[in-house]
């Protein structure tokens, strides 16, 4: 194929490509049926990961346990209220030595590791300390556990 034929053809292709890209993106018929999302979410709900269950109250008449994920959610909610903080992955562990045995609520220790992103320009030490206090008080108030160690790692910045 001669060069003088190829160039206009490629230009034409580039134009058709742009059109296809824009049209497909806006074409309402080029979306999967809603049943696809429904079944994906059904599987996700059925297989939802709650993590392990941490005992928060034990007695002869039964006990109360809270899932790691429930505590994680609590921590996200707490962090969301602080400006300039986006709470990301979170790990909750029982602190060593407090595993078993009956005990009143409010005495079990847990440790929390939380990764966060902060808005650029955030005062990191101050924000991290506020967040730590907030997490400790929320965990005490909501689930009666004592967050003995709260490790916060700033992994990212986000633009505001």
């Amino acid at each position: 194929m001669a060069l003088d034929e190829t160039i206009p053809r490629l230009a034409k292709l580039a134009e058709a490509t742009r059109t296809l890209r824009d049209n497909d993106a806006e074409d309402a018929s080029l979306q999967p049926h809603h049943a696809v999302k429904d079944s994906v979410m059904k599987v996700a709900r059925a297989e939802v990961r709650r993590g392990s269950l941490l005992p928060v109250y034990q007695a002869d008449q039964g006990g109360i346990r809270i899932s790691e994920q429930a505590i994680t959610t609590l921590i996200w909610f707490g962090a969301d209220a602080l400006p300039g903080v986006r709470a990301r992955r979170c790990r909750v562990h029982p602190a060593p030595g407090t595993a078993d045995g009956p005990r009143p609520a409010g005495t079990a220790d847990i440790s929390v590791s939380l990764r966060i992103a902060v808005a650029s320009g955030t005062n990191i030490p101050r924000t991290a300390e506020l967040l730590r206090q907030r997490i400790i008080s929320m965990i005490t108030a909501h689930v009666g556990l004592n967050a003995k160690a709260v490790n916060i790692t700033v992994e990212d910045f986000y633009d505001v």
């Binding site: 109360i64 959610t73 909610f77």
Partner: peptide, 14 residues
């Protein structure tokens, strides 16, 4: 007679 009653809080949500 109520025996053991165990409660697990699996999720906390709005």
């Amino acid at each position: 007679i109520p025996g053991r009653i165990d409660i697990s809080v699996l999720a906390i949500e709005h």
